[in-house]
């Protein structure tokens, strides 16, 4: 036990814990919107399309996060525009942008001369190398998301639930939908460095699905998802240290185990109560 606690003496591990707490908090808000609107597939499209931006940024020698952010935002806005105009099937458009982004990323990384040392960081994440500057960025973004959700909670809820009715009521539906698309894209990109492209979406879905086992109230799902996100990611981090396995994968693995255990408890409880009634 003391071995396990001694790991907190290391600055890099403490930073990793702070990062997972901060990501869990803003992912709880954005993820609740994603899961409630059933747009997880859009999140996947944004995440993978951002790899195109990373590849192009590598090729031109500029900050890969900038490239990822531009691609993610363009993809998110593009998907929302297609969804609103209905010119192309939304799922088809997502599939095209998803694979196009990955293809561009692979082509440009291949064309980049020399070795691309941080490529694996983007694919699988590197939460143990999070710097203090990264923490400030995560914290600042978390505060921005919290303010937006506090001020605009109702229009966000109404436009997600029944956009047509919200439009009849005079709510600027398109503005809110585009704003949420940009927030979604930024949240995903900002979390990629810690969790990686391949696994990041899990932080925006698994804690929310776990929270939804307890409540079907949008406002209550958010804090519960944050709690399950924090508990799953911190435990996953500790496990990765104990078992010497990649931290991003360990976090996602533990978030899933946590969900399955809680789900099992709910199923057993329901079965027990049904038998008791008989």
């Amino acid at each position: 036990m003391s071995d396990l606690l001694s790991v907190f003496e290391y600055q890099f591990f403490r930073n990793a814990v702070y990062a997972s707490v901060l990501i869990s908090i803003f992912a709880a808000m954005i993820g609740t919107y994603i899961v409630s609107r059933k747009i997880v597939f859009i999140g996947g499209g944004i995440t993978h399309a951002s790899f195109g931006g990373i590849g192009i940024a590598y090729y031109f020698g500029v900050n890969p996060f900038g490239g990822a952010a531009v691609f993610a935002i363009m993809t998110a806005l593009g998907i929302e525009w297609i969804a609103q105009k209905g010119k192309v099937r939304e799922d088809s458009a997502i599939a095209i942008l998803w694979s196009l982004g990955m293809a561009l990323g692979i082509i440009f990384v291949f064309m980049t001369p020399g070795y691309t040392p941080n490529l694996m960081t983007f694919l699988f994440g590197s939460i143990l190398s999070v710097s203090t500057t990264d923490l400030y960025m995560l914290g600042g973004f978390g505060i921005l998301v919290a303010i937006i959700f506090a001020v605009f909670f109702r229009p966000i809820l109404y436009t997600a639930f029944d956009p047509e009715f919200a439009r009849v009521m005079g709510v600027p539906v398109s503005t809110f939908r585009y704003m949420m698309s940009v927030l979604m894209a930024l949240a995903i990109v900002i979390s990629i460095r810690s969790i990686g492209i391949i696994l990041v979406l899990s932080m925006f879905t698994i804690p929310q699905i776990t929270a939804m086992l307890f409540t079907r109230n949008f406002a209550r799902i958010i804090p519960l998802a944050a709690v399950w996100g924090i508990s799953g990611s911190v435990t996953g981090l500790l496990l990765s240290y104990l078992l010497n396995i990649p931290s991003g994968a360990s976090i996602i693995f533990f978030l899933t185990i946590q969900f399955l255990v809680i789900k099992l408890v709910f199923v057993l409880k329901k079965t027990f109560l049904q038998r008791k009634r008989k």
Partner: peptide, 30 residues
């Protein structure tokens, strides 16, 4: 609207649903 347009699995309460029909408030900060 037609009830088939409504996503019953969406996490919204009856109170929140009914209050979304309130008109006399600023649509930006309702």
């Amino acid at each position: 609207p037609q009830v088939s347009q409504i996503d019953k699995s969406f996490p919204i309460t009856v109170k929140e649903l009914v209050s979304s029909g309130l008109k006399d408030i600023n649509p930006w900060f309702p």
